[in-house]
Design a protein around this nucleic acid. Structure first.
Lengths: 201, 201
DNA sequence: GTCTATACATAGATAGAC
DNA sequence: GTCTATCTATGTATAGAC
């Protein structure tokens, strides 16, 4: 699927394949200007190709966003399922690690990629594969919170997990208010500590 | 500025002035479909007027969003400055009330209006009046958190206030994941309690 | 105050040369 | 694999009748 036959000796790209150039441009533009506000022309120009060439790599504009969303959320899912399986650690410690990992990803990535999750356009039918992945991640948080609060009823698990997940994702909002700049190292750990205080005990 | 001379005997609107109809339509469409993805034609149609009539009430599309944002954030600002002045109450109690008020507004409004705050297009220059108001609100949270933690240094205040503000606003994300439906009554109080646990003591 | 008509620009997507 | 050229639809905004 990647642009293997792409010229390597010249061109505006220094960073990788043309496909990745498009994704990088999308990451930049979609989370700073919005999806509907960015034209395929502007997107292609930022990627250093013509508007038409975009359609050699992606069937349409939504597919660009979908690829971007999946590429962004995947590391969190992998880590969540890895941590979920580490039965040697107590649930609170596993929840702490998951929160710290996700919050750190969101806080320190060069661009505020998490802002992509907040685009209203994500509700579009074409992006349902991403929403399904996202639901898996939320499910992992719920399961871990449930193990931390074995005596509480099910709906209580969900409500607390929503608070925890919300707190982790609130770094996206914080960055957005600050113009998108990365947050200081240690932010992830700080948020994980706050999350555990919400869970209680 | 409101449509005083508007016909009252007939028309597609049941709820108020035409200007407010436009704002209602914008509230609905902008936070479910996005700003750039909604055309003025679609906006006008949802408000029950022709596309051209929109321009009798607003100079352009950005002005619709600006009015909507200001109208949405104003109650929070008014409450924040009222609570800030109630010196009879201890800081923690004032912070608790502010969090509960804001979180409740965000959680129970018929539409998920807070999602407007998250639109990337809010960074546009034309919307700077809103961002200024928003900064006042964040300032109120910082001041209150500072009073709750008188022994902590200044940057610590900011970091904790960001967590608290983020937790309050995370109800926007929670609603968004749930398709925009309102959250149960009591959500605001629950979030305020969690916020105080983050502040500590 | 609301409309139809329209100007004019830009949108997304395709065709076909190289 | 990339481009220019282009199609067709849709975008924002204005003009002017009623």
């Amino acid at each position: 699927m990647a642009g293997r036959g792409r010229p390597r000796t010249k061109g505006p790209s220094l960073s990788g394949s043309t496909e990745q150039d498009i994704l990088d441009a999308g990451a930049d533009l979609f989370c700073t200007a919005g999806f509907g506000s960015v034209s395929t022309y502007r997107l292609a120009k930022a990627a250093g190709i013509s508007q038409a060439t975009l359609y050699h790599y992606f069937a349409n504009k939504h597919e660009v966003l979908l690829a971007l969303l999946l590429q962004t959320v995947r590391p969190s899912i992998v880590m969540a399922e890895r941590i979920a399986g580490e039965n040697g650690l107590p649930p609170r410690e596993r929840l702490r690690r998951l929160c710290a990992y996700d919050a750190d990803l969101l806080a320190t990535s060069p661009r505020n990629l998490g802002a992509l999750y907040l685009l209203p356009e994500v509700a579009d039918e074409a992006l349902s594969p991403f929403r399904a992945e996202r639901d898996r991640l939320v499910g992992a948080y719920r399961a871990l919170v449930g193990q931390c609060l074995p005596d509480a009823p099910e709906p209580e698990h969900e409500a607390v997990a929503d608070l925890v997940f919300g707190l982790v994702e609130s770094v996206i909002l914080c960055r957005q208010r600050a113009g998108g700049a990365p947050m200081p190292a240690g932010t992830g750990d700080r948020i994980a500590e706050a999350a555990l205080r919400i869970v209680g005990r």
